[in-house]
């Protein structure tokens, strides 16, 4: 049974993930062909509620909704009643009273969508990133991107490098990759790599050494250093690139056909060198492309199954 919304990867069944990834393939645009608008979700209203700055996630949710024929409205905290001191519950109650078919939400507080899902059980909520907890559609689009180039996730060596402690992308990816039997190596400064990470899912290992982490890797996922989420200097930022930045010389350590990924926005010269970001190995822009296809699959699945169960 499909849950009412999409709050995280942790609670998602493997078969559910497979269904979304397979459906997303149908929504990938063919080469040199502009995308045709579908009307699978005609008459549906989707509210994109972004309490935190976002370019790619918000845009791709909007495009996904529109390509499916749904009406999408985007609201950002700065231009809404949130900036007038309205509480999260009241904002959501107000929006829910307008009967949207789904609410896509990005929020800086971990668990904000879970909290709302408890109070608004009738409106499906899609988590577009909550604090330092989960970012499920990012993990789905990352998996789609890998599977476009690799036959299976099983047995792949995936290195995730950077500020794991504050990364919702890392958490969602750990859950997803582990469900499919990948081997996951997490790497970053010790103060951003809490020991509890190793217990999150089977197949997870920690290391402080980037060379060890990426050796023979099939996939290297670089994370942005989220200085805005650090409440004190947990590491000396000046030497971050020296110890944890991915540079050309590292590419010899990874497998010849390995992929370099990054959820964006990238900081060239901080966690990844320009040369690597623009190299043949980099699939960063394919990730963005797949963002739309995967979000179309998610929206379709949630909105059509929800409509069925509602009647």
């Amino acid at each position: 049974m499909m849950p009412a919304g999409l709050l995280g990867i942790e609670e998602l069944e493997r078969s559910e993930i497979e269904a979304i990834l397979n459906r997303a393939k149908d929504f990938q645009p063919l080469e040199n062909q502009s995308f045709k608008r579908l009307d699978l979700l005609r008459g549906k209203m989707i509210v994109n509620l972004f309490f935190e700055a976002s370019t790619r996630t918000r845009t791709s949710f909007e495009i996904a909704a529109k390509r499916l024929g749904a009406d999408a409205i985007s609201i950002t905290a700065a231009g809404s009643s949130v900036s007038k001191g309205e509480s999260l519950v009241d904002t959501l109650n107000t929006l829910a009273a307008m009967r949207p078919d789904a609410i896509v939400m990005r929020h800086s507080a971990s668990g904000a969508p879970h909290f709302l899902a408890r109070h608004l059980p009738r409106t499906p909520i899609i988590n577009a990133g909550d604090g330092t907890h989960e970012h499920p559609t990012q993990a789905l689009l990352d998996a789609r991107t890998i599977l476009d180039r690799k036959p299976t996730l099983e047995g792949l060596r995936v290195a995730i490098i950077g500020d794991i402690a504050h990364s919702r992308v890392a958490r969602s990816n750990i859950y997803l990759l582990s469900k499919f039997g990948a081997e996951i190596v997490l790497c970053g400064p010790a103060s951003l790599l809490p020991a509890g990470l190793a217990c999150m899912a089977p197949g997870v290992r920690l290391t402080y050494d980037i060379r060890e982490a990426i050796r023979d890797a099939d996939v290297v996922m670089m994370l942005r250093v989220q200085l805005e989420r650090q409440h004190e200097a947990a590491f000396p930022a000046g030497e971050y690139f020296q110890f944890y930045g991915l540079r050309l010389e590292h590419l010899d350590l990874i497998k010849p056909d390995a992929l370099v990924m990054h959820p964006g926005p990238i900081n060239r010269g901080r966690e990844i060198s320009s040369e690597v970001a623009d190299s043949q190995r980099s699939v960063i822009l394919n990730q963005v492309e797949n963002g739309v296809a995967v979000r179309m699959a998610v929206l379709e699945r949630i909105l059509t199954s929800h409509a069925e169960t509602a009647h």
């Binding site: 971990s110 668990g111 509890g196 999150m200």
Partner: peptide
């Protein structure tokens, strides 16, 4: 304890809450 919301351990890591 500054900034923390719950006990620091596996569950704080899992929930993405500061410990």
């Amino acid at each position: 304890s500054a900034g923390g919301d719950m006990h620091e351990g596996f569950h704080s890591v899992r929930l993405g809450l500061r410990g």
